[in-house]
Design a protein around this nucleic acid. Structure first.
Lengths: 290, 290
DNA sequence: CGAGATATCTGACTAAAGTCAGATATATGC
DNA sequence: GCATATATCTGACTTTAGTCAGATATCTCG
């Protein structure tokens, strides 16, 4: 029972038998699961019928009937899409919004109840993040976002906190050459956030300069998402963006206290070069010609 | 999205949509889920029909039909129970054992496949253990076991390893007064292992002595199971066993590098006493009168 | 404009799971 | 021995989910 395979299977059993209890929010309101799922998909902002069908993996006939039953209940209204009358868009009515709110409340209460049972909620949440990221790894999207968006700022806070923990001397952003947000917006550069579901789990910035090269900054992957090769995906996406922007030379700096980063650069075509700036934190410098 | 409730809900979503993929082992052999579940329950050693029905939460009519379909396939045989001919016991036939083995192989392959996708399997497994323990906390059983059983030895190994990490000077069992296994067997004492499903996640020993008291030794809770108040349950069970054995005075020693242990003793009726042995590791001594 | 593609809907069907009311056989307690 | 309880089985039924083949309306492109 102590080998890895048995441990995974134990987890599967625990989760399978608890999933009913973990997410009973779809139940308990006297509606079959299928209809409840459609209602919740609409509530969560999906309105295009084809999109919902695709998201829930439903047959078009079944989808049509479920939608009809929600209309009969007075919870949903469908109209033809303005620019393509074959497509339909679904919207919650006032009663539908009430019903959706009730599902949300159930779901929240249930998650709170689960957390309340456990005195070490932090460790439990970290474990849940890790597993959720692992399970949804193929659904992680890399989105270009503003470096001052909520998601980007979250990543940067976490990134600085981690540097503080990992550098012997700590880390103080104000001492470092913090890139200006405007250098990480198109067309000078960009900022990419890796999103798992709605949780930001990694980021990287491409910072334009006036020195004939662009810099890669702030590459970070959440602890809960390590081991999914996300660093590599982020770097690939940044390089692609740099090519699009006509950039031909990339540079970056890093620190030997972050060995996994150095390792990543060395195995993906970067070459070590001499120090090219006077930032006090980095002690390793790389460049890559595109 | 970054608050605890949202994180739990993200986990729920991830797991709910992955559960199909997490445990598809019940599928893919051309048998409906219900029948496959019954076959597997029997394969895992449940033979009493009423017990299976209860375990799987099935209606008696449905159970009867599922069992009949497995019999028709030649996978299962049922006979009347020897001492009560109303009850039936189910057993796998040779073909049934083959089929069960195929399910097991599928399940193992699938768990292996999942692990193979992740480079940080250790962290993932630790997270899975933690969550599985949290989800099944109310199903943790405390079983009296031989101190030399596989389960007990696993707990002790983990316990020693943890002391090694937490004591500044490390920990060497041979320097400590390691209790003799025979002092932790009835009627002199006992040894209790906390089992979650089939994984040992905690232990405690009650060691009989000839000095008018018994000692509590080796209280340990797996990191994956902390925060579930398991330490307290283990202590309660040990005290109950001590009372049964006619023991009226308990003593124990511990170390101030394990603050959560000292805290537990202080809040559960133990009083600090002067050193009562010459073991080099402990620096705190407690006693409790039953 | 017309052919073919696309999005949705409708009707007819199946499989699986589950419910419920007895029927049957056996056990238990007086 | 008999009334009552228990374990299982059988038949009749419902609900839910899902499949599939067309019907209908609309769009797109030459």
């Amino acid at each position: 029972m102590l080998n890895p395979v048995s441990r995974v299977r134990r987890f599967n059993r625990a989760v399978t038998s608890a999933v009913g209890a973990l997410d009973t929010s779809f139940l308990g309101r006297g509606r079959p699961l299928g209809a409840a799922r459609v209602l919740n998909a609409i509530g969560h902002g999906r309105s295009d019928v084809a999109e919902i069908r695709d998201y829930l993996g439903l047959d078009s006939g079944l989808m049509s009937r479920l939608l009809r039953s929600l209309e009969d209940e007075g919870l949903v209204e469908t109209t033809a899409q303005a620019d393509d009358a074959r497509r339909r868009v679904a919207k919650l009515t006032r009663a539908g919004r009430r019903e959706f709110a009730a599902y949300e409340a159930l779901s929240n209460a249930q998650a709170e109840g689960f957390l309340a049972q456990h005195s070490q909620a932090d460790a439990l949440l970290a474990a849940m993040d890790l597993i959720a990221s692992a399970l949804t790894r193929e659904r992680v999207t890399l989105d270009e976002m503003d470096p001052q968006s909520e998601e980007a700022r979250h990543c940067l806070r976490e990134y600085y906190a981690e540097l503080g923990r990992r550098f012997k001397q700590g880390f103080d952003v104000s001492l470092s050459r913090d890139p200006d947000a405007k250098d990480m917006r198109r067309p000078r550069g960009t900022f990419i956030v890796a999103m798992s579901d709605t949780l930001p789990i990694g980021c990287v910035g491409l910072k334009g300069t006036d020195h004939g090269y662009a810099e890669i900054k702030r590459l970070w992957v959440a602890p809960a998402a390590r081991g999914l090769r996300l660093g590599r995906r982020l770097m690939d996406a940044t390089e692609a963006a740099a090519r699009e922007l006509g950039i031909t030379l990339l540079r970056l700096d890093t620190n030997s206290a972050l060995p996994e980063a150095g390792q990543l650069y060395r195995t993906t075509g970067w070459s070590e070069i001499p120090r090219f700036n006077d930032d006090p934190y980095p002690d390793l410098f790389f460049e890559k010609r595109l």
